[in-house]
Each structure stands twice: as structure tokens, then as C-alpha cells.
């Protein structure tokens, strides 16, 4: 190991004839694609931050995201999103193990871990589908133009406004409408992230089929699994920040 490092130090990387970055073209380009994608997500999240900073009132995430499937109206803040975060971390771990099996040309290992990764991705998408449905169809009593209306959270309507003092409806506190930007940003950014998860699942399924057909064994290396792995980890990385910006703070 130490001798390999010493040899690396002495190598003239820029004298030609070899990749100065010591990686394959495809992997390097995957890194640069992910860097540009990080700026896309960053721009979305920063724009959300700007609008949120410009408002006097912003909905409390613990109030908005407090539901859990089959738990009825129980108040469980952070619970469901913790499950989603955990699912994505675990699927990231199974992906690393698939890449690791690929390094050792272990086809059975790659197949096993890719299947688990794909299942994790599908589970995450299912969770997101449930959460979206719950937000869009979950009606809340809101005071609009002096009348009580029941509205869900969409890109154009937001029932999560400030409470109207001294007014209640069916035992629940009555609120005004909240800033519309809330729904737009939430559905836009989690939707864009969900689209990345979806395409990641499709890419992983293609990689699984190629592995099963022995394409990478014939090629002599499992580099494609590494590249798909980079993309999948990036999806997990973005979720760290979506989780931070929408649910935690």
C-alpha cells in the first residue's frame, strides 16, 4: 500500500499516455454530471430559502408532515420522513456492497445487492407517493374571504397558514391560507428528487439485467455498476439536503 502510494507520487501524471486523473472517461464524466446536477438542486433549494426568508410567516414542518400510514390522525412529526431517510441510507449501503462485489468480479454478489438496492428505491418511491397523496387530498378547514373552506395542499393552495385567534372548526384550530410558494417548492423539489430516484431505479434494473446476462463478465470489469452507483449515492446525498431544508429546519 505504501509503495503503491509512493509510486503514485512519482508518476508524471501530465506527461501524456495516461489519464491524469487515474479514472476512466465515463466515470470522470459521471462526476462532472453529478457536480452540475448538484448546482441544479442547489439552485432550487436556495431559491426556496430566499422565498422563505422573505416571508413573515412560514408553515411549521412538524405540523404539516405529522402523518403516518395506517395511523389515522395520530400526531407523529418526523416519523414518516425518518423512515424514508432510513430506507434511502440502507439502499445506498447495499449499492456500495454491489460496487464492492463488482470490484471482485463476483456476479452473484452484484445481483444480490442490486436487487436489494432496487427494492429500496421502489420502497422510497412508494413512501413519497403516499405522502404526496396525503398532502393533496388531506383537507383542512381554512378561512377564505370570511367563509370556512376545506382545502388540501397543492401548488396553488396552502391550508397551513397562521391560526385565526379564538376560532375553531369541528374542534380543530381554524387557520388562514399560508404562502402558496410552500406547495410549489415542496412538490417541485421533492418531485425532481423523486424523478432522480425513479430514473436511478430504472438504471439499476438495466444494470441488473446486464449483470444477469453476463455482459460485465464478458467485458472483464464491472465499471458500469460503479457509475450507476455514483448516480445512486448522489440521489441519497440530495435527499440529505431535502430532508434538512423541508423537514428539519
Amino acid at each position: 500500500m505504501a509503495t503503491a502510494q509512493a509510486a503514485q507520487m512519482e508518476t508524471k501524471w501530465w506527461s501524456g499516455g495516461k489519464s491524469p486523473f487515474n479514472v476512466e472517461y465515463g466515470k470522470l464524466m459521471m462526476w462532472y454530471f453529478l457536480m452540475s446536477d448538484a448546482f441544479t438542486f442547489g439552485a432550487f433549494l436556495i431559491s426556496y430559502g430566499t422565498i422563505r426568508f422573505s416571508q413573515n410567516y412560514w408553515p411549521d414542518p412538524n405540523q404539516v408532515f405529522n402523518a403516518f400510514p395506517f395511523a389515522g390522525h395520530a400526531n407523529l412529526p418526523l416519523a414518516f420522513v425518518s423512515l424514508m431517510t432510513f430506507i434511502l441510507i440502507v439502499s445506498s449501503v447495499t449499492m456500495v456492497l454491489a460496487v464492492h462485489a463488482g470490484h471482485h468480479n463476483d456476479r452473484k454478489g452484484v445481483i444480490k445487492w442490486m436487487i436489494w438496492t432496487i427494492l429500496g428505491g421502489i420502497a422510497f418511491l412508494a413512501c413519497q407517493a403516499w405522502e404526496w397523496t396525503h398532502l393533496i387530498t388531506g383537507d383542512h378547514a381554512v378561512l377564505i374571504n370570511g367563509k370556512v373552506e376545506h382545502i388540501g395542499t397543492t401548488v396553488s393552495r396552502n391550508p397551513w397558514g397562521a391560526a385565526v385567534p379564538g376560532m375553531a372548526h369541528d374542534g380543530h384550530a381554524l387557520t388562514t391560507t399560508g404562502p402558496v410558494a410552500f406547495g410549489g417548492y415542496f412538490f417541485g423539489i421533492t418531485g425532481f428528487h423523486g424523478f432522480h430516484v425513479f430514473s436511478g431505479v430504472i438504471i439499476n434494473i438495466i444494470m441488473l439485467i446486464m449483470t444477469m446476462n453476463g455482459v460485465f463478465d464478458r467485458r472483464g470489469h464491472y465499471l458500469m455498476i460503479e457509475k450507476a452507483g455514483l448516480y445512486w449515492h448522489f440521489v441519497d446525498l440530495v435527499w440529505v439536503f431535502v430532508f434538512l431544508c423541508f423537514y428539519l429546519i
Binding site: 413573515n56 374571504n145 393552495r157
Partner: peptide, 15 residues
């Protein structure tokens, strides 16, 4: 300009 929302809330508090 920024909020073509159902304008319901009183000024000052609403947003």
C-alpha cells in the same frame, strides 16, 4: 406580483 393566491389574510399578519 409574487402571490396570485386567494387573498384572504389581513395585512401585516397573513403571509
Amino acid at each position: 406580483t409574487s402571490h396570485p393566491a386567494p387573498s384572504t389574510q389581513g395585512h401585516g399578519q397573513g403571509h
